[in-house]
Design a protein around this nucleic acid. Sequence first.
DNA 1: TAGATTGTTAATCGATTAACAATC
DNA 2: TAGATTGTTAATCGATTAACAATC
Lengths: 210, 210
Amino acid sequence: MEQKKVPLVVIRRLPRYYRYLSDLNDMGIERISSQVLSKKLGFTASQVRQDLNFFGGFGQQGYGYNVKSLRNEISKILGLDKHYKVVVIGAGNLGHAILNYPGFAKRGFKFVGIFDNNPDLIGKKAGNLTVMNIDDLEEFCEKDHPDIGALTIPKESTANMAKKLEAFGFKGLWNFSHVEITSSLPVETVHLTDSLMTLAYKISSSAVDD
Amino acid sequence: MEQKKVPLVVIRRLPRYYRYLSDLNDMGIERISSQVLSKKLGFTASQVRQDLNFFGGFGQQGYGYNVKSLRNEISKILGLDKHYKVVVIGAGNLGHAILNYPGFAKRGFKFVGIFDNNPDLIGKKAGNLTVMNIDDLEEFCEKDHPDIGALTIPKESTANMAKKLEAFGFKGLWNFSHVEITSSLPVETVHLTDSLMTLAYKISSSAVDD
DNA sequence: TAGATTGTTAATCGATTAACAATC
DNA sequence: TAGATTGTTAATCGATTAACAATC
């Protein structure tokens, strides 16, 4: 779809555009200029136009951008027009939290299973699902072909599990353990600890100077 | 502590150094060169030396870096030598997950309270804590002076709650709702939805080309 | 048409990489 | 001492910002 390689830093801004355009659309606003859009998002107008023009000329001179159609374009770029079956690996607190996090479903992410190896958890309810035995994952995949595996297991087991998921035909990994996964699959890691450490830095450095 | 303004992109790499150096230290390894360190972390040796030299000359020509002392220096830079009292606002699944997330405690983060406005949740156990009434937060703060507020509440309430926490003397906000908080306090936001959307992009773009 | 705002090229800024003298 | 590796300056690369002709 894209011609030149789009920098990851641009991609990471797309969800912000998408969310804000969704809000505007819900508010019934039809058009917006790069100027106004940039103000709201804390970008520059130039940056907005540069970002969007990686993917095509969505705007119109003298008018700006149509909110609904721009939202839809970004949605397509992000792949949100497709549907993804998500499986959660690890039925701890974090697994439950992700499963029940509101807002995923309406963006095409459907949670189809949650697995654990702990006998105490297997069979328990989790949202509308029941925790399944991790040993049954392979069979489950053969039938259901899930797309995304959300890994909320201890870091010791993560590398191994990542390999398994790859073999089972998953298309991407959403990783919550603080381990850098090496996989040929696309991986997106959420580093909670790193985020908290960064906050600690901001706090302690802002206390010292300025 | 630092002379020149350190780019945030450098700060965000520090936790990775810190984690890896901790691992090395646990393994009993005493020294490491920028060369070897960079390989493991996927940086370049130049970048490692540049990063570290924002804060001072921690290395020694012909030798490299002492693992333990470098780890300690980074720990100090990140402010991990200090202690932080963390309060969780919102006792849903995500609040529980954060509270019980292993590894925070040993880095100086101590969870001292969890609050909610839902009568069904108030009084319930959460880790070693009991969910308290959000109305009692102010009084709690006057006595306990917590440092960090972890916001796991719906985005509609987040902006307001952020203002309150600022007034109550919090020093930093760890935000899990997809709202850009404007506060004079340091804020670190974890965008779960954005992260999942980015994964969707990676999946759908890798499916198309290369 | 005149005004507004894009798409796009050029200029600037900042971050990464390369190179090497200093030195342990 | 000789070898290794840092700290730091200079060169390169990439991303952001500015500017403006094209055009709705």
